[in-house]
Design a protein around this nucleic acid. Sequence first.
DNA 1: TCAAGTGATGGGACTTGGTCTCATCAACCG
DNA 2: CGGTTGATGAGACCAAGTCCCATCACTTGA
Lengths: 191, 191
Amino acid sequence: MGRWEPDARDRLVRAALDLFDEQGYENTAVAQIAERAGLTKSTYFRHFRDKREVLFSGQDELLELVTGGIAGASESAGALGAVEGALVAMAVTFTQDRWANGPRRLAVIAANDELRERDALKMAGFARTMKAGLLERGVPELDADVASELGVLALRRGYAQWLEAGGDFAEVARRALEEVRVAAAGLEGAE
Amino acid sequence: MGRWEPDARDRLVRAALDLFDEQGYENTAVAQIAERAGLTKSTYFRHFRDKREVLFSGQDELLELVTGGIAGASESAGALGAVEGALVAMAVTFTQDRWANGPRRLAVIAANDELRERDALKMAGFARTMKAGLLERGVPELDADVASELGVLALRRGYAQWLEAGGDFAEVARRALEEVRVAAAGLEGAE
DNA sequence: TCAAGTGATGGGACTTGGTCTCATCAACCG
DNA sequence: CGGTTGATGAGACCAAGTCCCATCACTTGA
């Protein structure tokens, strides 16, 4: 059994989420996750590079969408327009069924420092990728920095809103970005 | 020897930075850091909660300055004005002698994923603390989110500029924040 | 002056994350 | 039917991190 059963990766993800949810991240050993999935520790580490990553798989795919979304934005679009292109491009992976476990996943991450750390790194990765794409388009360095940070903020806010209320992710993210843009434009200086 | 020699913590920090610099973070064991500092692994973990943290000590102190700086900003100051208060308040710890190893530290962090991960968490911590302080002042949630993210961006940019060019940190950070503010205000929408 | 107390350290056992290597077994292919 | 491929199992191994207890330097109070 186990051997050659399909979807080893998915089984590991589900087992991990269940166990983290039931008994907490720290009280769960990798060997235990593997066992529940009908696999072994060796196999776990063949699929995920460490204990945290099981909750963050699919990131690479998203980064490619970000890069493509920014590069594919219309010539005339400004920095934020290109960032919007990135958010909209990400929408193809944000489908209801694939993210049914989104809220549980968020709760588990929020409850643990190690996981929040990994989450912060992932977010920084989005920002870095957006910034690189913007620089590629000729956006000045400062503008690229600001636009990518605001883009990640919009992504975070949009994701949370989408998990809560559902709907079309592209639309939700677009609104979140516009919201953030208006707020940023309205901030006054210090003097 | 070693026992009761003063400054155990500082010795550990210096030993760690030296070793990470010489042979890389991954190739350095905690026991080795402790040994170079004339201490043992046990003592190391009494001073730092894990291997990464030795490069990030002093964070709590900075968070307190952030909180104080925001709370202490003048009544009439807006969100960004309060954030500026936080950056200026942090300047007391950014003195040339205490940060002589800043560039080496940055290089070591940039060279390693685990350390960049911790760095991302620390930055997220600054943002969270700033946001909390702004909410405390009655700033709307969205504005607090945007202002704190821009504040952290200004902190990062200002810190890098200060390490490179020196000068008064408060002044450098203030300029960085204003720069970021102007760039954010100038970003156009997507339509 | 000395005995008790305090606080930082040493030391070592132990668990677990993570790496590495080799054996095994199912499926595929000629 | 025999060889190849690719995912898995098994187990040794190292380092991170936890825990507990002994030890020693220094302080305090009688």
